[in-house]
Design a protein around this nucleic acid. Sequence first.
DNA 1: GGTAATTTGTCCGTATGTATT
DNA 2: CAATACATACGGACAAATTAC
Lengths: 254, 254
Amino acid sequence: MIKSTEKVRPKAASRKGPILYTRIEQELREEIERGVHPLGDRLPGEHALCSRFGVSRFTVRQAIRRLGEEGLIEARPGVGTVVIATRKRDSFVQTLNSVEELLQYPAGTVREAIEVRQVLATPDLAEFLHCSVASRWTWLRALRRLQSTQIPISWLDAYVLPELVDALDLESSAGAPLLRQIEEVHGWHAVESSVAIMAGRISSEQAEHLLVEAGSAALIIVRRYRGQDGETYLATHSTHPEGRFSLNFEFEKR
Amino acid sequence: MIKSTEKVRPKAASRKGPILYTRIEQELREEIERGVHPLGDRLPGEHALCSRFGVSRFTVRQAIRRLGEEGLIEARPGVGTVVIATRKRDSFVQTLNSVEELLQYPAGTVREAIEVRQVLATPDLAEFLHCSVASRWTWLRALRRLQSTQIPISWLDAYVLPELVDALDLESSAGAPLLRQIEEVHGWHAVESSVAIMAGRISSEQAEHLLVEAGSAALIIVRRYRGQDGETYLATHSTHPEGRFSLNFEFEKR
DNA sequence: GGTAATTTGTCCGTATGTATT
DNA sequence: CAATACATACGGACAAATTAC
């Protein structure tokens, strides 16, 4: 059976560092990344791992479950635990630009302000901005057009902290992106930022400006920028009608 | 303590229907949805649930863990298990740390084949695959479900070179991703690959399987994998209904 | 501020079920 | 059919976080 050199010591977890199963999880993950367990291989059986690490099967399974949630392995009864991804993969290199390009707006477009107003965060908006309810924001609603043909490619809702707005140029069609303006004028740099991409619909008001049917499909891109205090100071919500925009990524091996 | 009315019966799981913890998981989820445990409330303690359902703490925790993965509750030591949402957000968020991960499929999902057929490339399909018209392809149509709740999160159309198909497992719901299988079985590695993200609509046939309205908005993700000769050997077209899926990127300065 | 009680987190050992080979 | 490997389940013990007093 599992056994244990010293029969005593069911004592407790008696932490010898990090939590036991995370230690095992990490060790196995490193082995997978280093190629000790190549893609398609089976990990040692749970019993084997038990004796190797000197822990119970429960603990081994806890580690294996987490690796499965990360998408590295897949356990199948009667077969074993198979490596289905090594994370590192064959190290693809992005041919286009850097990852940060996602944070920027497409070149060759101009912003056209529709309206600027002050708002208090409703519960919905607060959730969207990750801020507290009733905090104050400046809300810019704008249209983004292709410079060449003037075709509208997206609707923009941008929320900025009011104290940052005074020196900004929200109206200018040729103006720099808000993020750049804030960096230049106030010296604020985003410490954390995130991009979310999802499907959505065109509202009736957006439909008028974008010249598409209300309720039709759209690509939604939400960008959030947070400062050193972890608070969001700028968030944008772009709505791209179907067929007018797509994000493309190219990868080349090595 | 936990006790048990009849001391006997550690016998086994002795399935009286579905797996025990899923039964408990479902019962608790329904109570949360019905408002028996309102938002912000604490669920009964684990010991209480043990005696209520007549199961061990292990089983109760298994159910609670799954509810946590669905985002309904949050367990905190010393506090309890708090209801943080009253309805499962039938959505799935894939958080990416590098653009390369776009090439992989989200963990925690299973593929369920609907149909496999041989097709000749029409002009439309040829353009999509970047191949010549009338070339032969194996077309897999499948559904991708959340492993935890079985909710369908996307429709998959995959096109594979027929000569690669023989040794592949297209049906298996738990099988490795097609890209991995091709790497393992044939040793083909993608030299170039691309990902395109755009807005689209749900077809009527997809609507039936995805349980959404036909014509509603969707996020479309197209992945193409090319070998050393520059020819596409695998292309996938995923359709994610609005609200069921989003791609998230997190960036951190240094 | 400290202590006790409560609640979840971690871990062990064991037993049996189920799927695959 | 038998062996193997993962899946589910039980019950007990102690650790750690939080809260209430």
